[in-house]
Design a protein around this nucleic acid. Structure first.
Lengths: 141, 141
DNA sequence: CTGAGATATGCAACACAGTAGCGCAACGAA
DNA sequence: TTCGTTGCGCTACTGTGTTGCATATCTCAG
């Protein structure tokens, strides 16, 4: 499992004809292994286990991954970016943000459907549906 | 017009049995007069015309207005809160954020409709639909 | 009217995510 | 090897929002 994720990360990068540097491989690895979007800080912590990566470098690597389409970037309700290895149906799914622990989950099953009646002059690019509530871990039982 | 907005602001506050201080009146006034949600900085600038208000006080006044239901707080894509005098149908409408000038607009006509099939264990609180694109002012003509 | 308690405000200092500039290291092509 | 390009790390900075505490202002009982 561990090794296959490593390999997957490396292949994904080299397939684009890009340099699979240590920083990029390890960062993508962390994202691929996570089952929910991670914040910069969470990624940093995850990486720290095997040697630290500079804070700024991590920001740049994450932006790079997003630019190359290997990751996507979503915003929580705490003014923090979170990152996700891009899945098959990346575009347009909803996100769920726990108001308790503030973890974010991708809800790939839910897509926003809304009446597209923008006022004149507005041109639509993208739409995000973001839900708030409590996640399974934080359910008052 | 100017005076009626002033009066409206004052009445809205005193109607709640709360103290209509200078800071609160003027802040609410600015929000009432704006036709789109304003950021802290924009509000500060608008207030500055008639004497400055402390940055922190403004933050507190805004939170107070939100707590009292006189304003609501939305988040843009730039990690900045924006505030809006609460309209009749405040809950659940969509917001449009211009990717060019990053101004935010309320689209009270559009409400998210989505299939509510949350995975087990998730409990839904609120939902935000946020749209991105270019606003009328920023249309490449 | 006055004084005590509650509430608002202002100031300074802080916390935190994210960014800019710059030098050096690693790579890759000639 | 050399040289240009790309990536990395360090330091310092920006902008938004927050905390703590002292002072000012309001309210209301007496």
């Amino acid at each position: 499992m561990t090794n296959s994720t490593q390999a997957h990360a490396e292949v994904a990068i080299t397939n684009l004809g890009e340099r699979a540097t240590e920083a990029r491989r390890r960062t993508l690895e962390v994202l691929l292994r996570a089952e929910r979007p991670l914040s910069h800080t969470e990624i940093e912590a995850a990486l720290a286990a095997r040697g630290v990566l500079d804070r700024v470098t991590l920001y740049r690597v994450l932006d790079w991954l997003v630019a190359k389409g290997l990751a996507h970037k979503i915003e929580g309700h705490d003014r923090v970016w979170r990152f996700n290895a891009t899945a098959d149906d990346a575009r347009g799914h909803a996100h769920f943000c726990c108001t308790d622990c503030s973890k974010v989950y991708c809800l790939t099953g839910i897509k926003p459907a809304f009446v597209l009646s923008l006022p004149p002059g507005f041109r639509l690019g993208e739409a995000d549906l973001s839900l708030r509530g409590t996640c399974p871990d934080c359910q008052p039982r």
